[in-house]
């Protein structure tokens, strides 16, 4: 089986979870090639080789500096035709999801979206993915060739860097005209860790209500000491304590960190749908009856305004940060 892995870039830098897709492709066996699209992506193309791709297709053009669904779809279809791959893999980021869907629909083949696990069986892919917001797991197979799948961020280990090098094949960008024009880009603050890529998340909920600004300040301080991303429950977002992009849960982001620290979050079904597959869950809540304690591994029944700073102090001392 030959697998082509889409390596997403942003400002000439690889989107981290793309290497997880590459790692998963390598674990499937067979030949693994990478496709890097972007602008000034020489280093990313070299890194794809160093991480185990045996050939790297590169489309490097100013028109590709930002992801454009229509242009990238034509690029991917052209490279698929050239390399004749049996499978196409991407990370299930927003862009990866959209690209897989467009290529799949255009080619009339199915997409195994948002997989937690993926294996090859007789030259076909079998993905395991959650449906019903994490409440049911199902195995998915699709008709057609290439087989297309997207992998949920943090569902696989990134392909390790080895000393390998791979030939880089420059491909001209597909001759299509962009219809969507990007007028402005507002980036996250430097150093802000993406929720979906985070290995540790500290989240706040309704429990911060008596002083939301102080509550989230304390949560941010703990997150900073732990190298964690900041999250929030829907209740905190709906109350206007913190912007929507931090929302974890059913109408927000689905995350699966190694450690999820829920501060003042009751643990409603819709929140659990977003973080229920975290490896270790810590609950800090005044209410000993809160449902969050029934899914938590560790808990402290107490006021987050006292517990969170205590945890920050302890972590600073212990981790020397």
């Amino acid at each position: 089986m030959k697998t082509l892995v889409f390596i997403e870039t942003d400002s000439g830098v690889a989107v981290g979870s793309s290497w997880e897709a590459l790692g998963k492709a390598l674990s499937l066996g067979g030949e693994v090639e990478a496709l890097v699209i972007g602008h000034a992506v020489e280093a990313v193309a070299a890194e794809a080789g160093a991480r185990g791709a045996t050939k790297v297709y590169r489309i490097d053009d100013p028109s590709r500096a930002l992801f454009d669904l229509e242009l990238y779809t034509e690029d991917v279809k052209a490279v698929l035709a050239e390399t004749n791959a049996d499978a196409l893999l991407a990370s299930h980021t927003g862009n990866g999801r959209d690209l897989a869907a467009a290529v799949g629909f255009d080619l009339g083949v199915g997409v195994i979206a948002d997989c937690l696990e993926l294996k090859a069986e007789d030259g076909k892919l079998v993905g395991t993915r959650p449906i019903y917001s994490g409440n049911i797991l199902v195995d998915v197979r699709v008709d057609g060739r290439p087989q297309i799948a997207t992998l949920r961020p943090r569902a696989a280990a990134p392909a390790p860097v080895t000393g390998a090098t791979a030939p880089i094949v420059d491909v001209a960008p597909a001759a299509a005209k962009a219809r969507v024009q990007v007028q402005a880009v507002e980036r996250a603050e430097t150093g802000e860790i993406s929720l979906t890529d985070a290995s540790i998340i500290v989240s706040g909920g309704r429990g911060v209500a008596k002083d939301p600004d102080l509550g989230f300040k304390l949560i941010r301080e703990l997150a900073q000491v732990l190298g964690a991303a900041v999250g929030a429950s829907r209740a905190a977002v709906d109350a206007g304590f913190i912007p929507y992009k931090y929302q974890v849960g059913q109408t927000g982001k689905v995350v699966r960190p190694d450690l999820y620290i829920a501060c003042g979050i009751s643990g409603a079904v819709q929140h659990l749908a977003g973080m229920g597959s975290s490896k270790v869950i810590v609950a800090i809540n005044k209410d000993a009856e809160a449902p969050i304690f029934s899914v938590a591994n560790y808990g402290i029944v107490g006021d987050l305004f006292e517990i969170v700073p205590a945890l920050t102090r302890a972590a600073k001392a212990k981790l020397n940060r």
């Binding site: 942003d10 927003g94 862009n95 969507v180 024009q181 990007v182 007028q183 880009v185 507002e186 996250a188």
Partner: peptide
């Protein structure tokens, strides 16, 4: 909303 960023776009 595109990843961690916010894009203003026209179509």
């Amino acid at each position: 909303i595109v990843g961690q960023a916010r894009h203003t776009v026209t179509a």
